[in-house]
């Protein structure tokens, strides 16, 4: 049987959700018999393949224009999109930035902080432009939500195993946590 293609990416995130993927330990190695990791932050393909993948996984919140592009591309190139972790599902801790005026927050970070000498707010065109932080499903349709900060390796394993069996996972018990 052909392997199921999976792509993952992170938006405004701490990488903890990807750590939790790795925290499946030996089970991840077993899963690799059935799935093929295409583009992920731990592999070298930079974008999901154009011909598409079956499962796309996004972690992190939408926090800048680059995130929006990445989320849209992932949506276009995957059949089933999973929002993994509180940031992707709810917007998460980064949405606390929304409480503040963007310039005020940037000023604190790059001009006023105690150690900063001759600060300035970075504005090169090479950088993504910050936007109001939101969950992935505020930008693109999400098929499966796995909250948690991070979701437990068990929850991730359960969800992937269900998908491999052709079922849509329904999180219950210890698999459904917000912290």
């Amino acid at each position: 049987m052909a392997k199921v293609k999976v792509a993952t990416d992170w938006l405004a995130a701490c990488a903890g959700c990807h750590m939790s993927v790795l925290d499946m330990d030996e089970r991840l190695v077993q899963l690799l018999d059935k799935i093929e990791l295409t583009s992920t932050p731990i592999t070298d393909l930079k974008h999901p393949p154009k011909e598409g993948v079956t499962v796309g996984i996004l972690t992190g919140a939408i926090s800048n224009t680059t995130n929006i592009e990445v989320a849209k591309q992932m949506r276009e190139r995957c059949q089933i999109l999973i929002a993994l972790g509180d940031c992707a599902v709810f917007g998460g801790i980064v949405t606390m930035r929304n409480f503040f005026d963007m310039n005020e927050a940037l000023k604190r970070a790059y001009v006023e902080t105690e150690g900063t000498v001759d600060g300035q707010i970075p504005c090169s065109e090479e950088l993504g432009r910050p936007v109001r932080v939101c969950a992935v499903n505020n930008i693109v349709k999400v098929d499966i939500h796995i909250p948690g900060c991070p979701p437990s390796p068990d929850a991730i394993y359960y969800a992937l195993s269900e998908l491999l069996e052709g079922r849509i996972p329904v999180l219950t018990g210890d698999n459904l946590k917000y912290d």
Binding site: S63, T66, M96, R97, F100, A105, A109, E126, G128
Partner: peptide
């Protein structure tokens, strides 16, 4: 150039 392309705001929103 090595660009770090994101900014999340912990210093500010912890206030």
């Amino acid at each position: 150039f090595f660009h770090v392309n994101e900014w999340r705001g912990f210093e500010k929103f912890s206030e």
